[in-house]
Simulated assay, not measured.
Amino acid sequence: MYGRVVILGEGEVFGKLGETMFGMRLEGEMLHSFVGELANMVAGQAATIVAGRGCRIDITPPTVIAGRMHFYGLNNVVRMSVAFERAGELHFIISRDTEGKV
């Protein structure tokens, strides 16, 4: 099984999450690094759960994109929103593809 995980959110939400976790305000490159690390934590935990169910899984390093963008070609999509107290909401888009690289 192949797929993608996209985490969408406002910079302010990621900033508040980072501040909660690290006790200091994150900006610029530090914020971008935190977003990538958050993606690693989410994907790593998901991979652990999926692998525990007997599926072969591999994750790739995250790509952090700032600003507006449009997504095309995502198939079999599930979207889930998660609200964080005192931070805001993040949206997780999970797509399942029929081909790719492992």
Rank of each mutant, 00 (worst) to 15 (best):
M1R: 10
V5W: 03
V6T: 14
V6C: 07
I7F: 00
G9R: 03
G11R: 14
F14P: 07
G15W: 02
K16L: 15
L17S: 00
G18M: 09
E19F: 02
M21A: 12
G23L: 12
M24A: 08
M24V: 08
E27C: 06
S33C: 02
S33R: 08
S33A: 14
F34T: 01
F34V: 00
F34M: 03
E37D: 12
A39G: 11
A39S: 13
N40K: 02
M41F: 05
V42N: 06
V42M: 14
A43P: 06
Q45E: 10
Q45I: 13
Q45F: 06
A47H: 05
T48K: 13
T48R: 12
V50I: 15
A51Q: 08
G52H: 07
R53T: 08
R53D: 11
G54L: 08
I57V: 15
D58L: 12
I59T: 15
I59C: 11
P61V: 12
P62M: 09
P62G: 10
V64K: 00
I65Q: 05
I65W: 05
M69T: 11
M69K: 04
F71H: 03
F71I: 14
F71G: 02
Y72S: 04
Y72K: 01
Y72H: 06
G73V: 04
L74E: 11
N75V: 12
N75L: 08
N76A: 03
N76R: 12
M80I: 13
F84A: 04
F84D: 01
R86C: 06
E89S: 04
H91L: 11
I93V: 15
I93F: 08
I93G: 06
I94T: 10
D97G: 11
T98R: 13
G100V: 10
